[in-house]
C-alpha cells in the first residue's frame, strides 16, 4: 500500500520529468503531459463514454491507424513556447509593418501596372479564404491530436495562418483605396467560389477540413495541402509578382515563408517520431498518395492562371515532392 511506503520527497522538477538525466528546459516544463483526455481511450471525458464528443474522440483520435507511440514523448525541435512565439512574431510583424509603412509612403501601389492590378483581386487577395481554411484545419488539429506537445505546434500554426489572412486583408483595403473599382474587397469571395484558378484549392481544403481522423488530418494538411498552397500562393505568386514589378508581395511572402519552414520542421519531426513504428509509415504513405493528386491538380489550376509563369506549376509541384521525398514518403 502506498501509505506504508516512505513519504514522497520534493523533487527538482515535475515528477513526470524527474527520471531524466538532464535538467528540463522551459519548453518541457510548460508543454509536456498536459492532455488528460488523451489517456483514457474508452471515455475521454469525465461525462462518460457515450456523449457525442466522446464517440467522436474515440473514433477519430483513439481509433486512428496512426498509433502505437507515446505521443507525449514528441518534442517540437524548435522548442517553441508561447512567450517565445510572441517575441518571434512581434519581430516579424514589426518588419511587415515597416514594409507597409515605407511602401505606402512611396505611393508604391500607384506604380503597379494595370494588368497586375487586374490580376491581384483574382489571384492574390482571395487567398485570405485559402489561408482561413488552413487556420480552421490547424485548429482542428489543436483539439484532436493526442498530446500537448503536438497541440502546441498546431496552435501556433493556426495563428500563423491568421497572420497570412491578416496581411491579405490589409493589402486588400490598401489597394482598394487606390483602385476602388478593381474588385478589391468585393470580388474575392466570388473568385474563391467560382474562378477556375481557385477550385482546386477550394476542393482540396473543403475535403481536408472533413478528414477527421487525427492522423489523416495531419498528413493531408501539413504534408500535402499546406505545402502545396505555400508553394503556389507564397512562392510562385511572389516569383510572378517580382517579374510583374511587384516586389512588396514577395517581401511579405518571404516573411510568411519563415512560418512555413517552422511548420515543416515540426511536421518532419512528427513523421519521424510516428515512423519509429514502421506500420505508421505505411499508413502515412497511403494518405500521402491519396491526397497528393488533389493537391497537384490544385497547384496546376492555380499556377496556370499566373501570367507569364509557364514553369510555376512544375516548380511548385517539385517543391512539394521534394519535401515529401525528404521524409521518404514519395
Amino acid at each position: 500500500m502506498s501509505t506504508e511506503s516512505e513519504p514522497l520527497k520534493p523533487l527538482r522538477t515535475w515528477s513526470h520529468l524527474a527520471g531524466r538525466r538532464r535538467r528540463p528546459s522551459e519548453y518541457e516544463i510548460v508543454s509536456t503531459n498536459l492532455m488528460y483526455d488523451a489517456k483514457n481511450a474508452e471515455s475521454p471525458f469525465e461525462l462518460g463514454p457515450n456523449i457525442p464528443l466522446s464517440k467522436w474522440f474515440k473514433k477519430y483520435r483513439h481509433g486512428s491507424p496512426l498509433s502505437g507511440r507515446d505521443w507525449e514523448e514528441f518534442r517540437d525541435p524548435d522548442e517553441l513556447t508561447y512567450r517565445a512565439y510572441n517575441i518571434l512574431q512581434d519581430g516579424q510583424e514589426t518588419y511587415i509593418e515597416g514594409l507597409f509603412d515605407q511602401h505606402n509612403e512611396l505611393q508604391y501601389d500607384a506604380g503597379l501596372t494595370a494588368a497586375w492590378v487586374a490580376t491581384l483581386p483574382r489571384l492574390y487577395t482571395p487567398a485570405r479564404y485559402a489561408y482561413h481554411t488552413v487556420q480552421m484545419a490547424s485548429h482542428y488539429l489543436v483539439q484532436i491530436v493526442p498530446s500537448s506537445t503536438i497541440r502546441n505546434c498546431a496552435t501556433y500554426q493556426a495563428a500563423d495562418a491568421l497572420r497570412c489572412v491578416s496581411h491579405r486583408a490589409y493589402r486588400t483595403a490598401e489597394l482598394k483605396q487606390i483602385y476602388p473599382d478593381s474588385g478589391f474587397g468585393t470580388a474575392e469571395r466570388t473568385a474563391w467560389e467560382n474562378d477556375t484558378a481557385w477550385q482546386g484549392f477550394r476542393e482540396l481544403m473543403e475535403k481536408v477540413l472533413v478528414a477527421y481522423d487525427w492522423g489523416e488530418s495531419f498528413v493531408a494538411l501539413n504534408l500535402v495541402a499546406k505545402p502545396a498552397m505555400d508553394e503556389a500562393l507564397l512562392r510562385q505568386l511572389a516569383a510572378t509578382g517580382r517579374r510583374q514589378g511587384d516586389s512588396l508581395l514577395g517581401l511579405i511572402a518571404d516573411s510568411e515563408y519563415r512560418d512555413v519552414q517552422r511548420s515543416r520542421t515540426w511536421s518532419t519531426a512528427l513523421v519521424r517520431f510516428a515512423g519509429e513504428r514502421p506500420e505508421n509509415l505505411v499508413v502515412i504513405r497511403g494518405w500521402v498518395e491519396q491526397w497528393l493528386p488533389l493537391a497537384e491538380r490544385a497547384i496546376d489550376a492555380y499556377c496556370r492562371a499566373l501570367p507569364d509563369s509557364p514553369q510555376a506549376a512544375t516548380t511548385a509541384t517539385q517543391a512539394v515532392h521534394g519535401f515529401l521525398q525528404s521524409l521518404d514518403l514519395h
Binding site: 480552421m136 489543436v142 483539439q143
Partner: peptide, 9 residues
C-alpha cells in the same frame, strides 16, 4: 485552448 480551437474550427 482545445475548446477555443473548437470554436475557431
Amino acid at each position: 485552448s482545445s475548446a477555443e480551437s473548437r470554436m475557431a474550427r
